[in-house]
């Protein structure tokens, strides 16, 4: 599904060049449940952005779904995002003036889906995330956990292959965080490739492919078929 070959991403900050990703090689299978952990500035957000085609690598090759996406134009990248990738953000990124339903409809509005079909699909997704009685609420009338569930409904409404979540529980209390994580894992169980960036070691333990990053390099990859209770070896240093 995803293959990185010698991916580098350099930023120019003042006169200095910062190497956010250094020669990353990584393979992620379809249907994988991967977590990316690491200290701030280790490059995990950059990695997620490159994975999500929001950012383009300075060098290297990125194969997505068997296709080299390193040389695509902006509009081709947008089309690929629309088709393959769903995003969940730490700060939800809901549009305040729109209801939950309208927020979920937004990707379909951009894709030109007809209004009636849009409404159907959006309400299905909101039911799936347990918000059937909150459809006409605006984001400011919803709790943090509910907002993130609206965002998840929005991220899957175009039926992507990959779901990228950047600290999806970072702004939530532990109860809402658990609910959100349950939903995400449920989606993974249905076959979605789930990749999340997190600080939370518990989440890291629950994932099957665990990537640790430091200074732009993935230096530890650990695979567990199931959660190992009491194993805290993945806690941040």
């Amino acid at each position: 599904m995803i293959r990185f070959e010698n991916i580098c991403r350099d930023f120019k900050v003042g006169d200095e060049i910062v190497h956010a990703l250094k020669d990353v090689n990584q393979h992620i299978e379809a249907g994988e449940y991967a977590s990316i952990m690491g200290p701030s500035g280790s490059g995990k957000s950059t990695l997620l952005n490159v994975l999500g085609l929001l950012d383009t690598p300075s060098s290297g090759r990125y194969w997505l779904n068997g296709r080299d996406v390193s040389e695509l134009t902006d509009d081709e990248l947008a089309a690929t995002r629309q088709k393959f990738i769903g995003f969940v953000f730490q700060s939800f990124h809901l549009i305040q003036r729109m209801t939950a339903l309208e927020n979920v409809e937004l990707p379909m509005v951009l894709a030109g889906v007809a209004p009636a079909e849009r409404r159907d699909r959006a309400s299905q997704m909101l039911c799936k995330t347990g918000l059937e009685d909150r459809m006409t609420h605006r984001p400011d009338q919803l709790s943090g956990g509910q907002r993130q569930r609206v965002a998840i409904a929005r991220s899957i409404v175009m039926e992507p292959k990959i779901l990228l979540a950047d600290e999806p529980t970072g702004n939530l209390d532990s109860q809402s965080g658990k609910e959100v994580l349950d939903i995400l894992e449920g989606l993974h169980a249905e076959g979605l490739t789930l990749i999340l960036v997190t600080h939370d070691p518990v989440i890291g333990q629950r994932s099957h492919l665990h990537l640790r990053m430091t200074d732009g390099v993935i230096h530890a990859e650990r695979r567990h078929q199931q959660r190992l209770p009491g194993d805290d070896s993945h806690a941040p240093a």
């Binding site: 929001l54 947008a78 995002r81 629309q82 990124h93 951009l110 175009m158």
Partner: peptide
């Protein structure tokens, strides 16, 4: 700005 970023993440083309 953030809204434009969101639209782009959701697949909005330049022309849109």
């Amino acid at each position: 700005t953030a809204e434009i970023g969101l639209l782009k993440a959701l697949g909005a083309r330049r022309g849109q």
